[in-house]
Design a protein around this nucleic acid. Structure first.
Length: 908
RNA sequence: GGACGGCUAGCUCAGCUGGUUAGAGCACUCGGUUUACACCCGAGAGGUCGACGGUUCGAGUCCGUCGCCGUCCACCA
């Protein structure tokens, strides 16, 4: 028997076990036909990312699910990998180049991509190593990177299939344009930010009515050079007479028509809108309806071009705004300007305002939209918490085509080739395939790459060998797909979750428009989606680098251990709510590890370990005839806890899980059962039995706790001999509540419920006695004398527990009395307990204390009487409730009488 | 503007389909060298459940209105 150190040191335990698990192939996702499968694909972190608290939360949950599934005997695949993060990585490389004073065009595409690969190779994998430090049980041998060759083929294949099925088209439309990275963005990559802007009021002179003006409000005077109309609402009586006439655009000076369009808001400002079809989405639509020319005056990099006029050429949009305002003022056309708050779209990655711009791009009409809705609405895919389903459905209801081409270099290049020297606009000059044309010298490939999400939406099956799996991959795919759970944040429900569902439905089977329910069930990428909350700081602020409020998870692991951090973060995460993180809260996780360690240490010091390698061997050492109330009680509490844990897992309620285990282990097992054990261990005849029960409880606690705190539980499992040296805890399997009850009753152990409940009475008795000691400042004395008064039955019961009570209270004597006076007493359900103070009793203090008690109990009596005196209550409330109320009234009245008797005895 | 979530002890949260005197952890106060653990043990103080109204024998729990905080979607220039 190895002696256990006094304080638990995770550093001596965690790395050792992680290595052993990995070396022994414990994380390998291996098929076993006839055995239930469980699978998760990791939300791939950015290849160059580092571990954040968000990752800790997310991956801890996945690991908990995976490890629990292993314990349930399922074959588990947790498939890891990383994402190339096209625009994010691209931006990083460009930033580096800028420092060196060169652009990507100076460097050239090939060199640029090489640098991106170097960057990925160098930083890539850091985060995966960090996940190992957290204890994540991924099948690392299957690690996938979205830029790997096989994955890239999957991306091209998906594109080609969608093209062939008519979902992909090329077109010139309004796009969200990022002037910093010079690429189009999808709607989802644009975030709206409130801005303190200025609303400028200016006037345009009416051509046909010289000297008359129309007043227009705008936040963007720098676009007026691109105005090709002004618009009013068709029913706006103020302007009815001028519709069809023209106004003078001040510069470059030109006549532009006054048109009427329903899109104009009459209530806003003067109800006159300047229409700039080339630089505003709404204006673009108005322009389309009225056949207006779209005059582009802003370059892709947000500087002004020649069409803006010679004063403006080359100016940045902000400078142009100032100049335009000044010029308007000089011309006497600026009526005023006022502070104004509006929302401006920003590029998510580059964090600069986007420009709306007409641009030729590749677009995707989403496939299987209706089926994707059906899968969630009908519950084939379940969202946890459920409420996110509404969000999801709402987005799909309003879905718009997806701009999938990006004018970037790092990413999957679009598998389209154009015949050299021919018109790219004509599809007969296109070649669309995965492998490219047979005569590449006559073709040039599209320069653009695909949106990152157009690769990660294939993640659940492209990681498993789709579209051309080898034999093993095909069997794995059949076995592990659809995956069981997906764990992610609600912020990427549209970016990723919804798109993966559509991709799964479209690609995981034959091309088909409508799917039956069975087909739907086969094709969905996952059955459950668990949405985590966002990690915030104690003040509720988002974690951010600039605020410096994001702790480094590695520091936390260093301080609390991976297990401590995991337990801490899970106990603090309310279901579906954001998580307010503070380091203080992680202490609880570390503490319970230490407590666990010491409880096992106590077990080792208490007596030699017997053969603990199976539950049956342990129950064989337990005899029903030796069972006392405490044994019934702890086994009862254990079974209740197993039930709670089971239910918490089924409902993905992780804080419920930690709470149930913490409460049972700490309060019930350590604070009561182990304390009681100390008496039993003194006697050889009860010792072995008691230790066997301790072993049983510890074993089940370790098994239940293992998914949350894998390292320490593995260590202790071995130390207490619950598994042989060569095996692992995960090989044992955890019993369900029914299995546990069956095993117990198979060993002749039946829980005596009334006996178990009597322990609650003993606990109350002990607590009350301790409180009396505390009130009289005698906590440190272990030689006080206790008296009690009780009826005959309870007297016998209490006397049979005298030794334990004396031990737990810290008393040298416990004596039954017919009547007690001149001693402070406390009323409990089974007896009244008194502290023998001889002559030192403080009557005043006692009267006050009992008076308070009496007040409280009288309130309870009154409440119960009130209810029972109400005929409506007696008539309408269920019999069970009425009976309960009667019983409560009896108990309360008895207690009240007893307190009154005590008070009378004090002369009160 | 629309949708959703939250508002329960100083803090963070439980409280299932309405039913005994509303719970836990942390923090706090007091007392502790009890043969596992001070990353500990014991005792205690502390909420009337955001506001108002309604349904009901009975509401933290259901309904309505309002307020504050947060998230998402849309966006009026």
């Amino acid at each position: 028997m190895k002696e256990i150190a006094k304080a638990y040191d995770p550093k001596l335990v965690e790395p050792r076990w992680y290595k052993r698990w990995e070396d022994s192939g414990a994380f390998r996702g291996e098929r076993r036909e006839g055995c239930a499968a469980f699978s998760i694909v990791i939300p791939p972190p950015n290849v160059t990312g580092v571990l954040t608290m968000g990752h800790v939360l997310n991956n801890t949950i996945q690991d908990i699910l995976a490890r629990r599934a292993r314990l349930q005997g399922k074959r588990v695949l947790w498939l890891p990998g990383t994402d190339h993060a096209s625009i994010a990585t691209h931006s990083v490389i460009e930033r580096e180049l800028r420092k060196e004073g060169v652009t990507r065009w100076d460097l050239g595409r090939e060199q640029f991509i090489r640098r991106a690969w170097d960057w990925s190779d160098h930083h890539g994998g850091i985060i995966l190593r960090q996940l190992r430090g957290l204890g994540c049980s991924c099948d690392w041998e299957r690690t996938v990177f979205t830029m790997n060759e096989a994955y890239a083929r999957a991306v091209s294949t998906a594109f080609v299939k969608l093209y062939e099925r008519g979902y992909i088209y090329r077109g010139k439309y309004m796009v969200n344009w990022c002037p910093a990275t010079l690429t189009a963005l999808s709607n989802e990559e644009v975030i709206m930010k409130p801005q303190h802007s200025l609303l400028f009021k200016m006037r345009y002179e009416i051509v046909e009515l010289p000297g008359q003006f129309m007043e227009i409000s705008t936040t963007r005077p720098e676009t007026l050079m691109g105005d090709t109309a002004v618009a009013v609402h068709p029913h706006d009586v103020r302007y009815r007479s001028v519709v069809g006439k023209h106004v003078w655009r001040p510069f470059p000076r030109a006549q532009i028509p006054i048109i009427a369009d329903e899109a104009v808001d009459r209530e806003f400002a003067t109800g006159v809108l300047k229409v700039t079809p080339a630089h505003d989405a709404l204006d673009f639509e108005i322009g389309q309806r009225h056949g207006l020319p779209a005059l582009e005056v802003i370059n892709p990099d947000a500087t002004m071009n020649e069409l803006a006029g010679k004063d403006f050429v080359g100016l940045d949009r902000d400078e142009a705004r100032k100049l335009a305002t000044r010029k308007l003022d000089e011309l006497g056309l600026l009526v005023g300007q006022e502070p104004y708050q509006n929302n401006v779209g920003y590029s998510e990655r580059a964090d600069v305002p986007i420009e709306s711009r007409i641009s030729e791009q590749w677009w995707m009409r989403y496939p299987k939209v209706e089926e994707a809705k059906r899968a969630v609405r009908d519950g084939l895919i379940r969202f946890w918490p459920q409420r996110w389903a509404k969000n999801y459905l709402h987005w799909l209801d309003n879905i718009q085509d997806w701009c999938i081409s990006r004018q970037l270099w790092w990413g999957h290049r679009i598998p389209i080739w154009y015949r050299k020297g021919c018109d790219r606009a004509l599809s007969q000059n296109w070649h669309v395939s995965v492998d490219g044309p047979k005569d590449p010298e006559n073709w040039e490939q599209d320069e653009d790459v695909l949106d990152t999400w157009a690769s990660s939406w294939l993640w659940p099956f492209a990681t498993m060998g789709w579209p051309s799996p080898n034999e093993k991959e095909a069997r794995d795919l059949a076995y592990f797909y659809p995956t069981t759970d997906l764990v992610t944040g609600p912020d990427i429900i549209f970016f990723w979750v919804a798109r993966m569902i559509m991709a799964g439905l479209e690609f995981m089977g034959e091309a088909k428009e409508l799917l039956s329910d069975d087909e739907l069930a086969d094709r969905i990428p996952f059955r459950n989606v668990y949405f985590t909350g966002m990690i915030r700081d104690v003040q509720g602020r988002k974690m951010s680098k600039s605020l410096g409020n994001s702790p480094d998870p590695l520091d936390l692991i260093d301080k609390f251990g991976a297990d401590g951090l995991r337990f801490g973060i899970m106990s603090v995460a309310p279901k579906g709510q954001d998580i307010l993180f503070s380091e203080e809260r992680m202490q609880g996780g570390r503490n319970i590890c230490n407590k666990l360690w010491n409880a096992c240490r106590f077990r080792q010091l208490s007596g030699a370990l017997h053969d603990n390698t199976s539950l049956a061997r342990m129950t064989a050492r337990i005899q029903m005839s030796w069972f006392d109330e405490y044994d019934h009680w702890i086994i009862w509490r254990l079974v209740e806890t197993v039930k709670q844990v089971e239910s918490a897992f089924e409902k993905y309620e992780f804080n419920q899980l930690t709470q149930a285990l913490y409460g049972f282990f700490w309060s019930d097992f350590c604070d009561w059962y182990l304390e009681v054990s100390k008496v039993k261990l003194e006697h050889p005849e009860t010792s072995a039995h008691c230790l066997a029960i301790q072993d049983l409880v510890l074993r089940q606690v370790l098994l239940m706790l293992h998914p949350i705190a894998p390292h320490i539980t593995e260590e202790l499992f071995h130390r207490l001999g619950f598994v042989d040296e060569e095996s692992l805890l995960q090989d044992c399997g955890v019993e369900s509540p029914d299995q546990l009850l069956d095993l117990l009753s198979g060993a002749g152990i039946e829980i005596d419920q009334p006996a178990a409940e009597q322990v609650e009475c003993l606990k109350e008795f002990v607590s009350r006695a301790r409180a009396l000691k505390s009130q009289y400042n005698l906590s440190n004395r272990r030689d006080v004398t206790l008296f009690f008064t009780a009826d005959e039955e309870n007297t016998v019961f209490i006397e049979s527990h005298t030794v334990v009570i004396k031990r737990l209270v810290g008393a040298s004597a416990l004596e039954v009395r017919a009547d007690v006076s001149d001693a402070p007493g406390a009323v409990t359900a089974i007896a009244t307990v008194y502290l023998d103070l001889a002559s030192t009793l403080d009557l005043e203090v006692e009267r006050e204390r009992l008076g308070k008690e009496l007040f409280r109990i009288k309130r309870a009596v009154a409440a119960a009487k009130g209810r029972l005196g109400n005929e409506e209550f007696l008539k309408k409330a269920p019999a069970k409730i009425v009976a309960g109320a009667r019983q409560q009234l009896l108990a309360s009245e008895a207690k009240k009488d007893e307190i009154e008797r005590l008070l009378a005895g004090l002369g009160g």
